[in-house]
Computed example of a mutant assay.
Amino acid sequence: MPNSARHTSASLATRLASWLSQAIQRRWYSRPGWLWLLFPLELLFRGLSDARRKRLQADAKYFPVPIVIVGNISVGGTGKTPLLVALVKRLQQRGFNPGVVSRGYGRKSSPGSADVIVLDKASTAHAVGDEPLEIFTLTGAPVVVAEDRVAAVELLLKQFDCDLVLADDGLQHYRLGREIEIAVVDAKQLLGNGHCLPLGPLREPLNRLTRVDHILLAGAVDAEYTIQQMLVEQGLPLHQSVCCFSPRLCTLVHLQTAQEFSLEKLTSFDRFEAIAAIGNPQKYFNALEELLGVDNFNRHSFPDHYAFSAKDLTDFADKPVVMTAKDAMKCKAFAQPNWWYVRLDTDVPDIVVDSIALAVAAKSIERPNVESL
């Protein structure tokens, strides 16, 4: 087949895949419609997931310090990373010494790799993943990445004097024993049509939320009632701890120098390029427009965890570029003088911080049958 024909075929396949993905996403966050054809696959998925959970929980490993899970039951971005960063900072302010473990999604390692990596100042997003590097850069807390979160905790506690561990996106990593579970939900999209994959966006059934300690809604402050209503409609009990948190743009940071500026500096750009490779790029673009009050930027969306290279942004070399902190982790090596990222900040509900503090106090009393390192 000639090169031109192969290129055309590949292009058509890419467009078809993109169209199908968008069509499925629309059904996930509205009525299922034609996706009802996949209902048998949802039943199979739920059965396999439940069997997997029971098998892994039977061999769960607990540690001398509390393990706090920050995760979700749906696919896509829900705002976990800004929350985790803010939570680490709040705990540090209270005098705790938290560590973080993560899978390091998107890092370039061989499938099934047993690598356990401790982040340091020389770490790159390519090697450890963009979100773990963002957490490490913004908090200074010790961070370890590994597909096996148990191995990550073991190494973390061996090398650092941590009194608790936060596990990034480990809600379904059931071999890791945990004291507290925090489920993060996007307040606008909520849980979509309420179905599990592939009929809906859920990794686990809605009743999973009744077993977590806290449900945190990222965004609208009136979504607490809605999530409780969803539980009631499914015949499930109301949850005792449902709170909202609102990530907000707070600081403009220069990529080359790490110098910080007020967000007012954005108004000095006649027009700039806004770049986002996150789970929900539109949320970032909307926040920029709301902040500025005008639409003086061009939007450029990339797939979540996209591995940027210099050639991807060649057209923007001489233009002001404003990206997310997550994307900045992958673009520092080839950053241009007029490139920036916006750092997020968020409030963490006191009830969450207080419950973690109580868990640390409880773990300080030696428990029987807890495996020591």
Results as ranks from 00 to 15, higher is better:
281 P>M: 10
125 A>C: 01
217 L>C: 13
76 G>V: 09
326 K>P: 00
169 D>E: 10
134 E>D: 09
56 L>C: 11
5 A>R: 14
283 K>W: 07
197 L>S: 14
363 K>P: 01
303 P>V: 10
213 D>W: 05
186 D>L: 14
313 L>K: 09
324 T>Q: 02
74 S>P: 11
286 N>I: 11
252 L>P: 00
153 V>S: 05
340 W>K: 01
118 V>K: 07
118 V>W: 06
195 H>G: 13
107 R>M: 01
372 S>R: 14
69 I>P: 03
37 L>I: 13
154 E>N: 14
106 G>M: 02
116 V>F: 09
182 I>G: 04
252 L>S: 03
85 V>K: 03
321 V>R: 08
81 T>A: 02
328 A>T: 06
39 F>D: 12
117 I>L: 06
208 R>K: 15
276 A>C: 05
60 A>P: 12
175 R>K: 15
306 Y>E: 04
40 P>T: 10
294 V>A: 11
207 N>Q: 06
119 L>M: 01
250 C>P: 01
155 L>T: 09
161 D>R: 13
21 S>K: 14
307 A>P: 04
29 Y>S: 11
313 L>S: 08
233 E>N: 15
166 L>Q: 05
233 E>H: 14
358 L>A: 06
187 A>G: 10
322 V>I: 05
272 F>M: 04
93 Q>H: 06
134 E>G: 06
82 P>A: 04
170 G>R: 06
231 L>G: 04
263 L>A: 01
124 T>L: 03
189 Q>F: 11
158 K>S: 15
81 T>G: 02
178 R>C: 09
349 P>T: 08
208 R>F: 09
334 F>A: 06
231 L>N: 02
156 L>Q: 05
173 H>S: 12
149 R>E: 07
322 V>G: 02
259 Q>M: 06
266 L>I: 02
72 N>T: 11
147 E>V: 03
35 L>I: 10
252 L>M: 05
34 W>V: 08
12 L>N: 11
248 R>K: 06
136 F>N: 02
83 L>I: 06
